[in-house]
Amino acid sequence: MNKQQRIKLMEYQTRSFTEGTVEYMNDQWVFFDSESEEASLMDDYLHQEIEILYNNRWKKGKIFEGGKIDLGKDSIFLQNHDLIRIRKHLIYSLERLLEGLSDDSFFQFVTSLNSLQFSVYDCIYCYNHLEFLGHEKRKSGVNFLIFDNQEQLCNVQHHFSYFESINDRFEFTINSGKRMIIEKVSS
């Protein structure tokens, strides 16, 4: 698995977007989150990738000042009540943890999490103990992660031991009592 494949797997995660509509109010574009009904200024998302429902299809683009969206070859301007999606950001400690996993461990972790109906974007807490070990030769410990998909909670303990071999063990526990353990050992 290369970096491009990792990006693809992350791109197709469920709940990776905040979806809502926009309105022009007081000389500013305002985004209304359809789930939480919270309002935020579109200026907060300038130069970020967004998706807009355009001609009944989701189109990727970048948002610029004045409600301009660059779709690559074309540019369009926001209209009142346009439906848009803004990609969520991962919790920094989770992002660093995922970057540090081997390709096999990364794939097994993400696909196992998905099989339990959770997305990496459902992470509400991540303690990444690996970050505190720096450049030590022997690295072992446990990372703690909590995911919330609005229906259930999932606690993940990531036991790791990196020295002569690379050992990643993920213990998933859902609040319903369902449990799953996966382990990846490589030399």
Rank of each mutant, 00 (worst) to 15 (best):
A39H: 09
F107V: 13
S187D: 15
N175R: 01
N167F: 10
Y125C: 02
M1G: 13
L130S: 12
L71F: 00
M42W: 06
I181R: 07
I166P: 00
L145G: 04
K3P: 01
R85G: 03
F172D: 04
E37T: 13
F107Y: 11
K8V: 07
L90M: 02
M1D: 10
G72W: 03
F107T: 13
G66W: 01
L90H: 12
K137Y: 06
S176I: 08
D44F: 10
N114F: 05
D27T: 12
S165I: 11
R6E: 14
E171F: 05
I91A: 05
F31L: 09
T14H: 10
V22R: 03
D103C: 01
G20W: 00
K73A: 13
E37A: 11
Y24A: 03
I76Y: 00
Q117D: 15
E95G: 09
F163A: 14
I182F: 06
T111P: 07
G141V: 06
E183Q: 09
V185A: 06
R169G: 09
V110W: 13
N2M: 02
V156Y: 04
C154M: 06
Y45P: 01
V156M: 02
R169N: 14
F31I: 14
L46V: 06
M25W: 13
Q157Y: 01
M25H: 14
S165Q: 15
L130A: 12
S75R: 10
